[in-house]
């Protein structure tokens, strides 16, 4: 059985090699990514905890099954987020569920948006936390996921491009449009 200490010192790339020798090392990836991916799914969808666990099981089993498909030029985290993204979309299509987020976005994300130079006015986070959260939640999935990945998961344009399989330029455009929509919503309800 793999111990926690076997995992902690290993990079994702090392774990990939080890998984091919011993499938138990997959559990290291579960330890490393379960919480992050759970939060990511909750920010994209209103799936129940059970649904999310089902999706995550599929994600990790797909990682194992497709481990030879992982391209070292990519960050491993980008690859596993991509698989998660695809599973969320599959689950949504299969169950015809609405992809509205269940979690509020935390202050770290909101504070970045509140000081964004694209919005000319100062946003008082203390007063406007609820309004900003509502603004993000009303976004379409394509905008919400870039906002979540950029601000909350702190991914770069290139990483988001690898996760969503879209050109980096398209990611930049989506992000700008998403911010514009948030600020429009914010202004609309500011009066």
């Amino acid at each position: 059985m793999v111990n926690v200490s076997d995992c902690e010192q290993r990079s994702d790339q090392e774990l990939k090699t080890l998984i091919l020798q011993d499938s138990a090392f997959l559990l290291c990836l579960v330890d490393r990514y379960e919480a992050k991916l759970t939060r990511y799914i909750r920010r994209l969808s209103n799936f129940s905890q059970e649904d999310i666990e089902d999706i995550l099981q599929e994600v990790f089993l797909t990682v194992y099954q497709n481990i030879n498909d992982y391209d070292d030029r990519l960050k491993f985290s980008s690859w596993i987020y991509r698989i998660t993204h695809n599973k969320v979309i599959d689950f949504f299509r299969k169950h015809k569920k609405r992809l509205i987020p269940i979690d509020d976005f935390d202050d770290s994300l909101l504070s970045k948006l509140a000081v964004d130079p694209d919005y000319g006015h100062k946003i008082d986070l203390e007063l406007d936390r609820v309004k900003l959260n509502m603004a993000i939640k009303q976004l379409d999935l394509k905008y919400r996921e870039v906002i979540a990945l950029y601000y909350f998961e702190s991914k770069s344009y290139d990483e988001i491009s690898d996760i969503l399989k879209k050109p980096a330029g398209t990611v930049a455009t989506l992000l700008n449009r998403a911010k514009k929509k948030i600020f429009e919503y914010y202004k609309q309800y500011d009066h």
Binding site: S23, A24, L27, V30, E53, Q57, Y64, N66
Partner: peptide, 17 residues
């Protein structure tokens, strides 16, 4: 999640391609 994954791996339901 870990238990389910361990079970599936032990039952060899999933193999790397």
């Amino acid at each position: 999640i870990k238990d389910t994954i361990i079970n599936k791996l032990h039952q060899s339901e999933v193999e790397p391609r």
